[in-house]
């Protein structure tokens, strides 16, 4: 019974979702910028996975101190003679892991809050105020305070960044959810006796899925920037390398301004990742939207 009604409530004009997915992919494939960004992200992901195969873990002391880039050290060496190329390669791993993990955690919290706010009107008032208020506060100083208190480590970074990144996700999901919830097919799902959980799972969540997809990408890039900021200030995991940690070491040793290679390459890595994620999100949005396809 519900099956039939569910099919009946889907307007005939809307093609089934696989073909929407295929149309999006067809449009995305024609966008060189989007494809290039996806390739860059894939490459960075491979570097993160294959770090042990690409370079030895940078540790101890080397003989060439502050050597400029050469055949032996592609990205030069830092003040203790450690290879900057190896630092950037291993840093890719931590930066991406922290970025992804923090983003996924933030997405889970954000989607939960956003859907609840859009679905249950009384909750909307309270949740809306919390989200608004936390979006208007300076987040970085708050992250710094909590990270410093909790002690620097990779799990701390993930939790702290997620803890202060979910309101943005909740805001986006809520506004999309507010457009989905009053739809006739949601009302019809209630009429046929669907429970709240079932309606949310079957109708509201698929409705907000596209903005969540974009959110994952954008939140990850913001999380990478947050991680870099915290690590740069000295709140990174002291036992591993991340792009921000490399910059922190350069700042601490005073080679920041003179040995340009210690800062240029980690900076480029951050820029590459964030630009690629942003462009990917833009390309996906364009490909999904029939007007810009």
């Amino acid at each position: 019974m519900t099956e039939i009604l569910e099919k009946g409530t889907t307007p005939a004009a809307l093609p089934p979702s696989e073909s929407v997915g295929r149309q999006t992919w067809q449009a995305f494939r024609r966008n060189p910028l989007g494809l290039a960004s996806a390739a860059v992200l894939l490459l960075l992901g491979l570097v993160a996975l294959a770090a042990p195969l690409i370079a030895d873990y940078p540790s101890g002391y080397g003989e060439d101190v502050l050597a400029s880039p050469s055949g032996a050290h592609w990205f030069g060496t830092d003040d203790l003679g450690r290879d900057v190329f190896a630092q950037v390669v291993w840093g890719t791993r931590v930066s991406i892991v922290v970025g992804l993990a923090a983003s996924l955690l933030a997405i889970v919290i954000g989607v939960l809050v956003g859907v609840l706010a859009a679905y249950f009107r009384p909750a909307d008032l309270v949740l809306g105020i919390i989200v608004d208020v936390s979006l208007s506060l300076p987040v970085l100083p708050l992250m710094i305070l909590v990270a410093a208190l909790a002690g620097p480590s990779v799990p701390t970074l993930v939790v702290v960044i997620a803890l202060f990144s979910w309101p943005e996700v909740a805001r986006v999901v809520r506004s999309q959810g507010l457009a989905v919830v009053p739809m006739p097919y949601v009302a019809a799902a209630h009429v046929v006796g669907g429970s709240h959980l079932w309606v949310i799972r079957k109708h509201v969540l698929p409705g907000v899925a596209p903005v969540v997809a974009v959110s994952v990408v954008l939140t990850t890039s913001r999380a990478v920037l947050s991680e870099a900021g915290l690590s740069f200030l000295g709140l990174g995991d002291p036992n591993s390398w991340s792009w921000g940690t490399i910059l922190h070491q350069a700042q601490r040793s005073g080679s920041l301004a003179t040995a340009w290679w210690t800062t240029l390459f980690p900076s480029l890595a951050i820029l590459l990742l964030v630009v690629a994620t942003t462009l990917l999100a833009v390309a996906y949005n364009d490909a999904r939207n029939p007007r810009t396809r």
Binding site: L247, A257, L271, V275, T278
Partner: peptide
Amino acid sequence: GITGQSLFVPSVGVFLLYVFGV
């Protein structure tokens, strides 16, 4: 604009400092 949004503040700072200061 998209590139500008993606910049990491300390990177920009170090770059300007290196070029104009050093």
